[in-house]
Structures are given as structure tokens and as C-alpha cells.
Computed example of a mutant assay.
Amino acid sequence: MIDLFVIKVGGNVIDNPTLLEAFLQKFAAIKGKKILIHGGGKIATRMGDQLGIASRYVNGRRITDAATIDVVTMVYGGLVNKQLVAKLQANGCNAIGLTGADANIIPAVKRPVKEIDFGFVGDVTTDSVQAAPLQALLEAGMTPVFAPLTHDGKGQILNTNADTIASSLAIALSQHYSVRLIYCFEKKGVLHDANDDNAVINLIDRQIYEELKADNVLTDGILPKLENAFAAIESGVAEVLIGHADDVQSNTTDTVAGTLIR
């Protein structure tokens, strides 16, 4: 029986007030213990533009220089996080906003410079995540809401991928709970046909995954999500689900609308 849901919601929902309100109502209605991890990259880009701080990307990843880390800290840890917390409170969910620096929950290491200097970007190791503070909050009936920020233990905030934070939290907490990690995005799940949004594959295990790869059914975009999903499962997470943000509430039940990975 699943007794903790770790849910990551993507930027396309965060950026749209109507979609966001609908998502938060459904998230608030989920019974039991839950954690929310959010992004907010497009909002950070807009705020940076207003401040005259241009966003730079390499291979789709943000370069986080000294000016940019200030912007993303303000936007992710302040504006977006506290708006989500306030909206969840309005929906009867006792949320508490956090970053990885709070209670030292997610220490990280600044990404080493190789071919590219990503700046103040944090890489997380699963064994560094401190589960005890989160357990205390969950057992007290609170719902942690995480911004995609960590810290290096020396006073520096680091920008960290929200998918990575979700996976790291799920793995650390799987030592204490049966965890379903849910990635919410704009598709209904893993698809048999990338051009048919209704061609959802409802269940994938390692054997089915290898067969789908061999048959070239999976697109390049979904492969990293599935590899991360199996890495989480192999590290103790009971289940991973990939599905549409609209289906978040039903995807915490036994009858899922997305793709359940075991």
C-alpha cells in the first residue's frame, strides 16, 4: 500500500493560472501524506528580462551565473513557492514552503566545470538528503512544497533540476514509507504512438521497457524519464508514475490514468 506521494509539477502548469488553480485543487484533495516539487523557469526568465538579466541556455539547461542565481532564488523560493503555499492553504491543504537549504534537507555539490561552466547549479547525491525533518513535518500533518533550490553547506544557494529533487526525496523517504513518485507533465503518459495522446501504455516494467526500446516505440524525449524512473525504483521507490497534471488526483489511486512503472 502506498503511503506517501512525491509529486513534481512542470512549468507549463505553473505558468498558466487556470491550469494551476485546477491542479492545486486536485492536489489538495489527495488523501494522506504528500510532497509537492515545482519548477518556474519561464517565470524566472520573464523576471530576469524585466531586470535586464538575460537567460542563457546550453543543451536546454540554464546557465546560472551570479546574477541569475539571485533571480531564481527570488522567483523559485519566494514568488512561486509562496504563491503555491497560499493557494494550497486556501484549498484546505496545510502546506509549508521549503528549499533544500531549509533544515539542511538537501545539501548539494556545485557542478564541476567541464566543457561547460553551468555556474551555481547543484548536483544532489541521494545519501545526502536528510529525511528526518521531512518525516517530522509529514507526521505533523503538513505538506512540504519544495522549490528547486539546494545549498552547498557554505552559504551558497544552488539551482537544481526539479525532477532530480523529486527523485532524490522519493528515494530518501522510501526507507521510511512506501512511495509513489509522480511526474506531472503535458502528456497523458508514455505513449505507444507519439502522435496519439490517447495511446497511453498503462503499465511498464523492466522487461516491457526493453521490448519497447527494441521496437523503437519510445521517443528520445521519454527515454530519460524512464531511465530515471527505473533508477528510482532500483533505489527503493515502490512505483513511479508519468502522467498528465489534470490526472494527478486519480493517479494517486489504484486506477491510474497515466503510465505506472514498477
Rank of each mutant, 00 (worst) to 15 (best):
Ala166Thr: 02
Ile208Gln: 15
Arg62Gln: 08
Lys110Met: 06
Met142Gln: 11
Val248Cys: 10
Val13Met: 11
Asn16Pro: 10
Cys93Trp: 10
Asp197Leu: 06
Asn94Met: 09
Ala140Trp: 01
Gly153Thr: 12
Ile105Gln: 10
Ile96Pro: 00
Met74Lys: 14
Val13Glu: 05
Val71Ala: 09
Pro144Ser: 03
Ala131Trp: 03
Val200Tyr: 02
Leu79Tyr: 14
Tyr209Cys: 10
Thr253Ile: 04
Asp65Val: 07
Ala170Asp: 06
Gln175Val: 00
Val13Trp: 05
Asp152Trp: 13
Pro148Ala: 00
Asn81Ala: 07
Asp65Met: 01
Ile63Phe: 06
Ala162Thr: 05
Val145His: 02
Leu191Pro: 11
Thr73Ser: 15
Ile233Gln: 10
His192Cys: 02
Gln130Cys: 05
Ala108His: 13
Asp3Val: 06
Thr164Asn: 05
Ile204Leu: 13
Gln249Ala: 12
Ile63Leu: 15
Asn81Ser: 05
Leu20Asn: 12
Ser168Ala: 15
Asp254Gln: 11
Gly41Val: 13
Asn81His: 03
Ala166Ile: 02
Phe120Val: 04
Gly78Phe: 08
Lys188Asp: 08
Lys154Phe: 08
Asp205Glu: 10
Val256His: 12
Gly60Met: 03
Ala66Ser: 12
Asn12Ser: 14
Leu169Tyr: 09
Ile208Ser: 14
Ile233Cys: 08
Ala172Trp: 09
Ala194Phe: 11
Ala214Pro: 06
Ser250Thr: 12
Gly155Gln: 12
Ile208Phe: 09
Arg46Phe: 14
Asn159Lys: 06
Ile43Ser: 09
Leu19Cys: 10
Thr143Asp: 10
Asp102Arg: 11
Asn59Arg: 13
Cys184Ser: 04
Pro17Leu: 11
Glu211Thr: 15
Ser178Val: 02
Asn16Gly: 08
Gly40Tyr: 05
Ile106Ser: 11
Gln83Phe: 01
Ala229Tyr: 03
Asn202Tyr: 12
Thr64Phe: 03
Ala231Asn: 12
Gln156Thr: 13
Gly60Arg: 02
Ile7Asn: 03
Val124Pro: 06
Met74Ala: 15
Ile14Arg: 14
Ala136Thr: 12
Gly122Phe: 02
Glu210Trp: 04
His176Tyr: 13
Gln50Phe: 14
Ile204Phe: 08
Leu134Thr: 01
Ala162Glu: 03
Phe146Asp: 00
Met142Pro: 00
Ser167His: 00
Thr219Asp: 14
Asn94Asp: 15
Ala67Cys: 00
Thr150Leu: 12
Ala170Tyr: 07
Glu186Gly: 00
Ala232Trp: 01
Val113Leu: 04
